[in-house]
Design a binder for these strands. Structure first.
Lengths: 111, 111
DNA sequence: TGACTTCATCGTTGTACAGTCATATAGTAT
DNA sequence: ATACTATATGACTGTACAACGATGAAGTCA
């Protein structure tokens, strides 16, 4: 038996999930998990589908949420993962999605 | 070191987080985690802030996502949690939010 | 000083979606 | 058959927000 979300936290938990519910932001997090600390330019180069303005906006959202931290160095801004639970959260979702896909495939096979 | 989200799963993971990023849906999940299997009417009574149409819509979204399962009994529709990882996901987010709140409080105290 | 680089922010536009009301569907009972 | 109950769905409205382009702010170098 697990403890439930406290009523008072529901909206905050939803907000956290909402921050994670965007493919561009997940791509940024994936990149930071893989390569550690990166500046905005490096992230833009790696994503090469999002404008610099767009990447900056997403980084701001992640930073306000406390998921990444920022460090300035000259004109550069270096970001890195600040929330150690992010990787585990994503892993759990991936695992679950994979299990679901297998179950659905088996259901079709039976039917 | 944790494994990364496969590129091909990014959009699906985002979609899953988006489904969880709504306070009404989290309230429904919380209710089902607490009380087990419930029908639509029972959920509406417990939430008493959402219309029946609204609850049905959210249940549909959760069902399509494979997070809850449905069982019909006469005219009633009973729903229950189908994704055992949901409780753990919410717990992790709650824990993290609590830690963050404490850290921020300490930062203010220092400053 | 001015030119240049790096990042952040503003204003706009289009889209996704939560909520509501009304209605449809389906089972039960008389 | 009608009436009633429980749930699902369709049409609509308002709001949140992702993406874009342009511009601002701040640091570096000539």
């Amino acid at each position: 038996m697990s403890h439930l979300i406290p009523e008072s936290l529901i909206e905050h938990v939803a907000e956290r999930f909402r921050v994670l519910g965007d493919a561009t932001r997940l791509s940024i997090l994936r990149l930071l998990l893989e390569r550690g600390e990166l500046n905005v330019g490096e992230i833009c180069d790696a994503l090469e589908g999002s404008s610099q303005a767009n990447v900056s906006k997403h980084l701001r959202i992640l930073h306000v949420a406390g998921i990444v931290s920022r460090r300035r160095e000259g004109t550069a801004a270096y970001y890195r993962i600040a929330d150690p639970s992010i990787a585990e959260l994503c892993d759990m979702v991936c695992d679950r999605l994979t299990v679901q896909a297998v179950e659905e495939a088996r259901t079709f096979a039976i039917a």
